[in-house]
Amino acid sequence: MAKTVMVVDDSASLRQVVAIALRGAGYEVLEACDGKDALSKLSGQKIHLIISDVNMPNMDGITFVRELKKNPAYKFTPVIMLTTESQEQKKKEGQAAGARAWVVKPFQPAQMLSAVSKLIMP
């Protein structure tokens, strides 16, 4: 059974490209445009991994991860956060919220694919 990845980012083009790369590798992909949207789309179904941006409208990535980890159905779901090399403070906040994997923007689709594959093989 294909593993499901949720991509949370306010950039539609980024979501599209990541989704294309991941689907090509055999993952199922769900998209959400911010933390709030993502939470509303999580209703107990199995999600193997979440990719989330940090800076998003409505609900930022850090708050989203914090909320996510409160949900028993997702508290162990790995999260890849998208960040910039200069966001050390955000990284610390993200770690406190429970995110451990980081991918630095800008990235190539292949980079994202390898980051995802390290955490969950398709």
Binding site: C33, S86, Q89, K90
Partner: peptide, 21 residues
């Protein structure tokens, strides 16, 4: 971490964006 402690002052910016959702 070495990169620039000064940059830690950053604040999240996207929150102010008009809702795209």
């Amino acid at each position: 971490e070495v990169m620039s402690a000064a940059l830690n002052k950053q604040k999240s910016v996207k929150d102010a964006r008009p809702p795209e959702a």
